[in-house]
């Protein structure tokens, strides 16, 4: 079964959805703005004869119609990073600030970690975690290439992540860009459609719930957690949010993404979800000519103790 068929009832125009999923995606690079401005990158591309096109909703992205995002001088200088357009969205929703403590729970290969560090102007601490040691080497390579100096890399199961190796025991913000069924990346990697199984959906949903719950626990009251996937499966998206809303003190808040999105769904396959999942955003390939994506922004419950002077007391979680 082609899993994309499964989601046709959710979209406004099934034919356009399927047609977009069949088109390959152009190469896109994100400018590492702590190293170079978009204007300088554009000038360097022009000098070198690298074809480039702007991305209307983000001035730090360039489409490279001839591909080969790593084969040019701006890349070698650490001024750019190959990153699919929609992959930039969770970092925008997270909106990390210089000096903060930020957790990237499923960080490899580091596209979002390096985007977070760039948004923080390389100041503060971003803890980039992944349970896959092999993929961490790709993350390390990318972080070094882009000149990131404010990242700590850890190799833990995010579901029971311990802050013990860190100098603090809670984060200001956390990103859970969860492992998922990835049908949203079918324009880049058509194999994901052939490898899809419902069993995997259910198995990975359990992992996603565990990671998101831990991220809420590890973030300070009033802090922000962003949950994102590149799957269309409600089991891995709204159902995960619904579960964590019931288990942990948090609420879904609006996030203002600069692309056309549709609200999260409250019913799927006989299940119903909390009404607030409609604040989550679904990104379909035919709406913005991108990959598929899902993104939700959560505010961690409890009194906002920001700047109450508790920062840096160095206590370690039990």
């Amino acid at each position: 079964m082609n899993p994309l068929e499964r989601y046709e009832p959710l979209v406004d125009d099934a034919a356009a959805f399927r047609a977009a999923c069949d088109r390959p995606l152009p190469s896109v690079v994100r400018v590492n703005q702590m190293a170079a401005s978009p204007a300088r990158v554009r000038e360097a591309f022009d000098e070198e004869g690298v074809a480039h096109e702007p991305v209307g909703w983000h001035d730090g992205l360039f489409r490279l119609p001839d591909g080969n995002p790593g084969g040019n001088w701006p890349y070698v200088h650490g001024w750019t990073h190959g990153q699919e357009e929609v992959s930039v969205l969770p970092g925008l929703a997270l909106d990390p600030q210089p000096g903060e403590r930020v957790w990237d729970a499923c960080a490899a290969p580091g596209s979002k970690t390096t985007q977070i560090a760039d948004a923080m102007d390389d100041e503060g601490t971003v803890v980039a975690n992944d349970n896959n040691l092999g993929r961490l080497s790709a993350l390390r390579h990318n972080a070094e290439r882009l000149g990131i100096t404010n990242a700590i890399v850890t190799n833990q199961d995010a579901r029971n992540f311990s802050t013990k190796p860190l100098a603090f025991d809670e984060f200001d913000r956390a990103l859970v860009d969860a492992p998922c069924s990835c049908e949203g990346t079918c324009r880049k990697n058509p194999d994901v459609v052939d490898q899809w199984t419902l069993d995997h959906v259910h198995a990975v949903a359990g992992i996603q719930k565990g990671i998101l719950a831990r991220a809420v626990q590890a973030t300070r009251p009033g802090g922000t957690v962003v949950y994102s996937t590149c799957t269309f499966a409600p089991e891995e998206n709204e159902a995960v949010l619904d579960h964590v809303l019931g288990e942990e003190a948090c609420e879904i808040v609006d996030s203002d993404l600069p692309v056309d999105t549709v609200p999260g769904v409250t019913e799927w396959d006989g299940e119903t979800y909390d009404e607030s999942v409609t604040r989550a955003q679904r990104v379909y390939p035919h709406h913005n000519d991108t990959g598929g994506f899902f993104c939700a922004k959560l505010r961690v419950g409890g009194e906002d103790e920001e700047s109450a002077g508790e920062a840096g007391d160095g206590e370690v979680a039990a």
């Binding site: 503060g124 601490t125 961490l136 390390r140 990131i148 100096t149 990242a151 700590i152 850890t154 100098a167």
Partner: peptide, 19 residues
């Protein structure tokens, strides 16, 4: 390694800043 954030000393992590 050079690092621009908060860390314990010693730190038992995979990486801290960049080489």
């Amino acid at each position: 390694w050079i690092f621009n954030g908060e860390a314990t000393d010693p730190s038992e992590v995979e990486a801290i800043g960049m080489t």
